[in-house]
């Protein structure tokens, strides 16, 4: 072919612009604009996420207090419309607060997170759900098998299917987009996909059940949400890193395995933990232990990923300043 392997043809890894001079970091090439961006923070992401988590915590406090004051009301069922509202509300709060905070802080956000959010929802409904429930019949098997098989099934089938779907959305939709310009955007897109994915899973769950109890049902939805957000955070971290570094070939796979294992384990453990003491006065079920696990996992993962990202970004900035 006529083209030569020369730096003349290098393009910016973010925007694809042909580069006249090469700005390189860990085998990725940048234009002048994006060279200064990829290690920047996606500030609205953290703030919107903390705000939404704050809302979830407040909501749970409300549930706890309400359940103390009117336990009968909280044991009652609510219709699927209310269930769907409960399922979608946290995601809406996250998306809206992401863009509002972006606007308030003059942080330019592309519409891609919304696209990813919708894609996540669509894929969960159109691909993973039919695959898991109609082809693999996972729900029937999981519901009738032993605890160890349930753990294995949750990790190998549930965990990998969910995680790969989220990975695929980001890897094949967001990866090549100029909107993916920061490491932390990887986390943002992964979270957006997870919000959409988990919200639709929850909505379909509510529709399947027809009605849910106000306390146990709502807490189960929040538990699932936290598990998928945790998965998204882990995946987002690895994708974010990998997008702006020519990482070893196994790097993403490690991320996928970690995310899928955490996803599967948390799905298993949150259900298992909810089976509590059975006695003449205790019913053998409580929604709180599983929720505590998933919220704790989410909080831990969130602070870890955020810390790692910020540390990584700071190191990168220091290195680039040193080079400059």
């Amino acid at each position: 072919m006529a083209y030569m392997s020369t730096h003349t043809y290098a393009r910016c890894t973010v925007c694809g612009q042909t580069l006249s001079r090469t700005l390189e970091f860990k085998n990725r090439y940048y234009c002048d604009v994006h060279y200064g961006l990829f290690y920047q923070n996606t500030r609205p992401l953290w703030r919107a996420s903390i705000l939404t988590f704050g809302f979830l915590v407040a909501a749970l406090l409300g549930f706890a207090i309400g359940n103390q004051l009117a336990p009968e009301r909280f044991r009652d069922t609510v219709q699927s419309g209310t269930g769907i509202f409960i399922a979608i509300l946290p995601a809406l709060i996250w998306i809206i607060s992401l863009y509002r905070i972006g606007a308030q802080t003059q942080f330019q956000l592309s519409p891609l997170p919304i696209t990813i959010f919708v894609l996540g929802a669509l894929l969960s409904a159109a691909v993973t759900r039919p695959f898991l429930y109609n082809i693999v019949n996972l729900d029937i098997w999981i519901g009738s098998t032993t605890a160890s098989n349930r753990l294995m099934g949750n990790i190998l089938l549930n965990g990998f299917t969910h995680t790969f779907t989220l990975y695929a959305i980001i890897r094949y939709i967001a990866w090549d987009s100029p909107a993916f310009m920061r490491r932390t955007d990887g986390v943002m897109f992964a979270l957006a996909a997870s919000w959409g994915y988990a919200s639709l899973i929850n909505i379909l769950y509510v529709i399947d059940l027809g009605e849910i109890t106000l306390l146990n049902g709502s807490l189960r939805l929040i538990t699932q949400l936290c598990i998928f957000l945790t998965t998204g955070l882990i995946l987002g971290y690895f994708i974010g890193r990998n997008r702006f570094e020519d990482a070893p070939v196994y790097h993403l796979s490690v991320g996928l395995i970690m995310a899928a294992t955490v996803n599967g384990f948390m799905l298993y453990a949150s259900s298992a933990l909810n089976s509590t003491s059975l006695s003449l006065t205790q019913s053998g079920f409580s929604p709180w232990p599983g929720l505590a696990l998933s919220m704790g996992g989410l909080a831990l993962t969130f602070s870890t990923v955020r810390g790692l990202m910020q540390r990584q970004n700071a190191l990168t900035q220091a290195k680039l300043e040193q080079i400059a």
């Binding site: 706890a64 336990p71 044991r75 146990n216 006065t281 019913s283 079920f285």
Partner: peptide, 8 residues
């Protein structure tokens, strides 16, 4: 609340 919710 756990104690409350499981009180059958």
């Amino acid at each position: 609340s756990i104690a409350q919710s499981t009180k059958a």
